[in-house]
Amino acid sequence: MNTESTFLVHVIDDDLSVRTAMYLLLLACGYRVFTYESGTQFLEHSLLDEPSCILLDVNMPGFSGLQLQDHLNAVNSHIPIIFLTAYGDISMSVRAIKAGAENFLTKPVQKDDLVNAIEAANRRYKNTQKKRSTLHELRVRYSQLTERELTVFSMVVRGQLNKQIAFQLGNSERTVKSQRSSIMEKMQANSLAELVLIATQLGLLGKEDK
């Protein structure tokens, strides 16, 4: 099996036998594994921003799996969650998935189903990190625009023509064209469509602008 040895699985379950079984199984599959007896114990550890997912029991004393999911969502965690429970029901699984869970598996789970879910979580983590990296880079580029370029940028991505922008700002079309060219260069956009996409990714365009 071709798994990535650097991918970490956090197993959170109050049942020691389950934690042990999951630890041995996942270790044999090539994953790094950390185990926790409760959601509270998991939160007590400093979580590094590294490729990982959470294998989470639903019904635990104190902090339930769903409550832990809510907490992680509240702190903007990007770690994919796979629920694993013997007592799940349809409404519970729907709630978990709607809240962003990667999967909802029922014990006893087949090895292939578990590994497939973890690999899907691995891909999701990579995609999320890629999007975060891209967004960071776009924000850096956007921060390099001058105050006037920010204004022109906003008007351009909302479909205004150079002459309209020039009229509203009291500039010449030539000046607007120069500013627009500078914006395209700084944002590394090759077309208006690409610039609009960047504005959308940055959250600068609302539904009413699309």
Rank of each mutant, 00 (worst) to 15 (best):
M1H: 11
N2F: 12
T3R: 06
F7D: 01
F7C: 08
D13N: 08
D14F: 00
D15R: 05
S17G: 06
S17V: 13
V18W: 00
R19L: 13
Y23Q: 14
L25Q: 11
L25T: 13
L25A: 11
L26S: 03
L26F: 03
Y31V: 06
Y36A: 03
Y36R: 00
T40A: 11
E44Y: 03
H45P: 04
S52K: 05
I54H: 00
L56D: 05
G62V: 06
L66C: 02
Q67I: 03
Q67R: 03
D70H: 04
N73A: 11
A74D: 12
N76G: 02
N76T: 05
I79F: 05
F83A: 09
A86R: 04
Y87R: 06
D89T: 02
S91P: 03
M92S: 10
R95W: 00
I97P: 02
K98P: 04
G100D: 03
A101C: 05
E102L: 10
E102F: 02
N103A: 14
N103F: 11
L105D: 07
L105V: 04
K107P: 09
P108N: 10
Q110V: 07
Q110G: 09
D112S: 04
V115N: 02
A117C: 03
I118F: 07
R123D: 09
R124F: 03
R124H: 13
Y125K: 08
H136T: 14
L138G: 05
R139K: 14
V140A: 12
S143Q: 08
L145S: 14
E149H: 13
F153M: 09
V156Q: 04
Q160W: 12
N162I: 08
L169R: 04
L169M: 15
L169D: 05
N171V: 03
S172G: 08
T175V: 10
M184C: 04
M184Q: 13
Q188L: 09
L192F: 15
A193V: 02
A193G: 15
A193H: 07
V196R: 14
V196C: 08
L197K: 15
L197S: 14
L197P: 00
A199G: 06
G206A: 14
D209N: 13
K210Y: 15
